[in-house]
Amino acid sequence: MDQLTASSKAFMEYLQIEKNASPYTITYYADDLESFFQFLHQEGVDNLQNVDYKVIRSFLTALYNKKLGRRSVSRKISSLKSFFRFLERDNQVSGNPFLHVTLPRAEKPIPGFLYMEELEKLFEVSDLSNPIGQRNQAIIETLYATGIRVSECQRMQLSDIDFTIGTMFIKGKGNKERYIPFGRFAEVALENYINDGRNKLQQKASSPTNAVFLNNRGGALTARGIRVILNKMVENAALTVHVYPHKLRHTFATHMLNEGADLRTVQELLGHENLASTQIYTHVTKDRLRSVYMNSHPRATD
């Protein structure tokens, strides 16, 4: 095993065991290291101790020549900074050559969200007389009611839902845990599905599962499966806007803030570690902006 492979393996174990990083995070780091190692092989650099600013500058040039966006480049640099910080701590290198590499911060785009008229079409598209329709309705009501990530939705177990007090137990990124309340529409959709459709789907399975959302063979639904379901619902609703699970999370946060929820509460519900991650949702819709103006400005109307 060469130095690059051994160092990468040790770093992945560090992320998994010490940092408790999610599988998605570990995959991103692995991809970023792999692209950097490929570059080093091309440049004839076989020792990480020989990585200096000149090598890094050539690496950045190679990334931009591939037409990678600033966001992708920034992520790779961030990954490599963390990697070399680990190597330095482990005495594999004498310093971190990425320490002083900075990139201009790109302006964060405002997250896309759905208007209520668009949501209503999605809420009305499922056939609630069959198990699949009941499941799909429960999924979309849950995603919008709670703002949870699709991975959190996919991992949900029956025991995580407490109908007596209307809350869900969610295990999020880095195994961070939180409780999220849900409203009447999600409650009805979930009860209808769990008491009827889910039982019928479960009967098709060879072994029982406690996963809330099941596929048409009675097994636990995957995150990809949820995305496929949502795409089909959008198609059936004849929506012209692009809808993806995270857009429902954006919509949840935007609607909560537009209706008066405070930023800290929304941060807690979303499971954001930093308030800055939640502040991107403080934009308001043009309709609400106009409504507030028309109702508040003394000379807005006759």
Rank of each mutant, 00 (worst) to 15 (best):
residue 38 Q to N: 15
residue 118 E to S: 04
residue 209 T to F: 02
residue 215 N to V: 01
residue 196 D to R: 11
residue 47 N to Q: 13
residue 89 R to C: 13
residue 302 D to R: 11
residue 131 P to M: 00
residue 94 S to I: 10
residue 179 Y to K: 12
residue 30 A to N: 09
residue 40 L to W: 01
residue 22 S to V: 08
residue 110 I to V: 15
residue 275 L to F: 11
residue 74 S to F: 04
residue 183 G to I: 05
residue 91 N to L: 15
residue 214 L to E: 00
residue 24 Y to K: 15
residue 28 Y to P: 07
residue 159 S to I: 05
residue 277 S to M: 09
residue 49 Q to H: 12
residue 19 K to P: 08
residue 176 K to S: 13
residue 95 G to C: 12
residue 191 E to F: 12
residue 131 P to W: 02
residue 270 L to K: 02
residue 247 K to A: 12
residue 42 Q to D: 12
residue 46 D to Y: 10
residue 93 V to K: 03
residue 19 K to M: 14
residue 298 P to M: 10
residue 21 A to H: 05
residue 270 L to Y: 01
residue 272 H to R: 04
residue 206 S to W: 02
residue 268 E to S: 08
residue 96 N to D: 13
residue 266 V to S: 00
residue 58 S to N: 13
residue 218 G to Y: 03
residue 2 D to R: 06
residue 297 H to T: 09
residue 13 E to A: 15
residue 134 Q to T: 06
residue 234 V to N: 05
residue 50 N to H: 14
residue 123 F to Y: 03
residue 275 L to S: 13
residue 42 Q to A: 15
residue 135 R to Y: 01
residue 249 R to W: 02
residue 258 N to Y: 05
residue 85 R to S: 14
residue 224 R to N: 09
residue 211 A to F: 04
residue 135 R to F: 05
residue 164 T to M: 12
residue 277 S to Q: 07
residue 195 N to K: 11
residue 234 V to I: 12
residue 268 E to C: 06
residue 184 R to I: 09
residue 241 V to G: 04
residue 252 F to I: 13
residue 31 D to V: 12
residue 3 Q to C: 11
residue 182 F to V: 10
residue 130 N to F: 00
residue 176 K to G: 15
residue 198 R to C: 00
residue 274 N to L: 15
residue 158 L to G: 09
residue 146 T to L: 06
residue 282 T to A: 10
residue 254 T to H: 01
residue 284 V to N: 08
residue 47 N to T: 12
residue 138 A to Q: 01
residue 25 T to W: 03
residue 137 Q to P: 04
residue 222 T to P: 01
